[in-house]
């Protein structure tokens, strides 16, 4: 091998000029604040007080903080309930969208509506829907003869309210992703299975589900990380109430940032990041492991 030759012409410069701006802002305004936040988790950093190194003091406080414990439990519970539901509803919706029918185009267009509406506005609409006295949610409940539910005022009601509103907003996204996965499954596999005499439930279990697996894993990863950082919907629907029952980790961190305790807020943010990282690694690992088993 000879010595390396660099492109003497101006092309290299052009390439750098084209690539650099795409990296510059994300590094400056995403990576840098994030890294600062991680470091700041080890600082005592409260408004109007001198900033100083605090080691793991924030984290020691974190471990004993009942509010954090509540937040963590709520967030994990929320993930555990909403992500499987989203996946199930998303799959159903995706299957509906794939069926050859004159209504297919309409369904595919309408599905984008909840996705496209700003989460803040969705939050407001659902707040109204959950209104105790004249919201349609309780109107439906009362039609069945059951007593009105205190949707946003009780901890169980608020949890359910958030899960349902979140489902409405996110199922379309899951469905769109899964639909792409469904469309990628070659038609002839179904034909073959049909010729082999498999019923349509059998075909679904034997062909659709296994082949959809990689896309499902992507959807799970996206949704889990998104559910982990849920903020806007809760901020509007319950502001974390009643009594902190629905305060997600992001909302808790936000409260401390706004309250001026940057150090502790940073520690909470770092925790969220670590959980997100863990989730990502876990989902990817499980996905790999599963596919190597087959």
């Amino acid at each position: 091998m000879g010595k390396r030759i660099s492109r003497a012409s101006s092309d290299t410069v052009w390439l750098a000029v084209l690539l650099m701006p795409a990296l510059l802002l994300p590094v400056a305004l995403i990576l840098m604040p994030a890294l600062c936040t991680f470091v700041n988790g080890c600082m005592q950093d409260v408004t109007f007080m001198p900033r100083r190194w605090a080691g793991l003091a924030n984290y020691a406080r974190l471990v004993q903080d009942p509010a954090l414990f509540h937040s963590l439990r709520f967030t994990l519970l929320f993930i555990a309930v909403s992500v499987p539901l989203e996946l199930a509803c998303g799959l159903l919706l995706a299957l509906l969208m794939q069926v050859q029918s004159p209504l297919r185009g309409m369904l595919r267009a309408l599905v984008l509506i909840p996705w496209a509406i700003p989460a803040a506005i969705a939050g407001r609409v659902w707040e109204l829907i959950y209104s105790y006295n004249w919201g349609p949610a309780n109107y439906l409940v009362k039609l069945t003869g059951a007593p009105a539910v205190n949707w946003l005022g009780s901890s169980t009601g608020a949890f359910l309210a958030i899960v349902i509103a979140d489902l409405w907003k996110t199922v379309p996204f899951v469905a769109i992703i899964l639909l792409a996965g469904l469309s990628a499954i070659p038609e002839h596999l179904y034909r073959q299975a049909e010729v082999d005499g498999a019923s349509f439930i059998r075909r679904f279990v034997a062909i659709t589900l296994p082949l959809l697996r990689p896309v499902m894993i992507v959807a799970i990863l996206f949704r889990t990380i998104d559910a982990l950082r849920i903020f806007d919907l809760i901020y509007i629907l319950t502001s974390g109430g009643p009594g902190g029952a629905t305060s997600s980790l992001s909302l808790l961190g936000y409260t401390y940032f706004v309250g001026g305790d940057f150090g502790y807020g940073s520690a909470i943010s770092t925790l969220i990041f670590l959980i997100a990282l863990l989730v990502a690694l876990l989902v990817v690992r499980i996905g790999r492991f599963g596919s190597s088993m087959r």
Partner: peptide, 12 residues
């Protein structure tokens, strides 16, 4: 030319 460390781009 590797020895002269020169290369023209296609358009040149």
């Amino acid at each position: 030319s590797a020895a002269e460390r020169r290369v023209l781009s296609p358009r040149e």
